[in-house]
């Protein structure tokens, strides 16, 4: 199943900044304007004094615009911390982190809120308001930018694109897990943010639904030329990525294309695809 996916990915326009020959090097980094995220020597620690625990060590990473990047690694490796730093949800104290050209290091809270408005978030639990219909949940995101006139149309267009045309006036209670996650994706994409951050978006979904959801996400983000950074443990969806970054113990372990990633994590003699999953 990976072969189909990777062939696909290689031909996509988002792949143009991908450098499989030299994945860990930043020497070929494109000019700044072409970078959605630029991280230099980022360190991060929780707590203070004796309780201080460093979780990220000297991370340097560039995400060009239009790439779909999967961030993977064992639990506790700092993936979630990294993504919440990129999402301007935590304060960067050491090193440099630029999102869409804006330096997040030591940024005031009010400015971080503004940065967040240009980022689409998708979560493991969909976090939809139970009291609102699918349409209203999506409209909440449009309202944030003050577009009250067009919000209804915008919500309907994106929900239709995600195949929820007949589910718009249902509350989350009346939606299946996949449909809820699609509403959450609609909410993240409706404002056409240049950057999407997704945390285990398929963790709660079955195989077929995850595939559907991820393919929709891939199609829409490609259309919008949007950068996607997705944390996942789900090997079934690795093929949608242009690039896979592996984070271990707070350090960048590898930065490759899906093909190389799968090969390097697979026993040569293994007959079962499933074996890969145990390793990752």
């Amino acid at each position: 199943m990976y072969l189909e996916g990777e062939g696909d990915a290689m031909t996509k326009p988002g792949n143009r900044f991908f450098a499989p020959e030299n994945p860990l090097s930043n020497s070929l980094a494109p000019i700044k304007d072409e970078l959605a995220v630029q991280i230099q020597h980022l360190n991060f620690a929780f707590g203070k004094g004796d309780l201080c625990k460093q979780v990220l060590f000297d991370i340097s990473l560039n995400l060009p615009k239009g790439q779909i990047v999967i961030l993977t690694g064992p639990s506790g490796s700092g993936k979630t911390t990294l993504i919440s730093l990129i999402g301007a949800l935590r304060t960067v104290r050491e090193g440099s982190l630029r999102v869409m050209g804006q330096e997040l290091a030591d940024m005031r809270n009010a400015d971080r809120v503004r940065v967040r408005q240009s980022i689409g978030f998708i979560f493991q639990s969909h976090n939809l308001f139970e009291s609102l219909t699918a349409r209203q949940n999506v409209e909440m995101a449009v309202e944030l930018l003050g577009r009250f006139k067009s919000k209804r149309d915008q919500a309907e267009v994106i929900l239709t694109q995600l195949g929820l045309a007949d589910r718009m006036d249902h509350k989350p209670q009346a939606l299946s897990g996949g449909q809820k996650q699609r509403v959450a994706i609609a909410r993240a994409l409706v404002n056409h943010p240049p950057l999407i951050l997704a945390d285990e978006p398929t963790a709660a979904l079955d195989k077929q639904t995850s595939r559907e959801v991820v393919t929709l996400m891939q199609t829409l983000t490609r259309e919008q030329n949007c950068t996607v950074l997705m944390v996942t443990h789900d090997n079934r969806i690795l093929d949608v990525a242009d690039r896979i970054i592996n984070l271990v113990d707070g350090q960048l372990e590898s930065d490759t294309n899906p093909d190389a990633f799968i090969n390097s994590h697979t026993y040569k003699n293994s007959k079962h695809d499933d074996a890969k999953m145990f390793i990752m």
Binding site: L89, R116, F121, F123, M140, A141, R187
Partner: peptide, 15 residues
Amino acid sequence: QHLPEYATLKAMGYR
């Protein structure tokens, strides 16, 4: 009960 939703609103950029 709505704390995760409120956190989401704040993450989205609501103040």
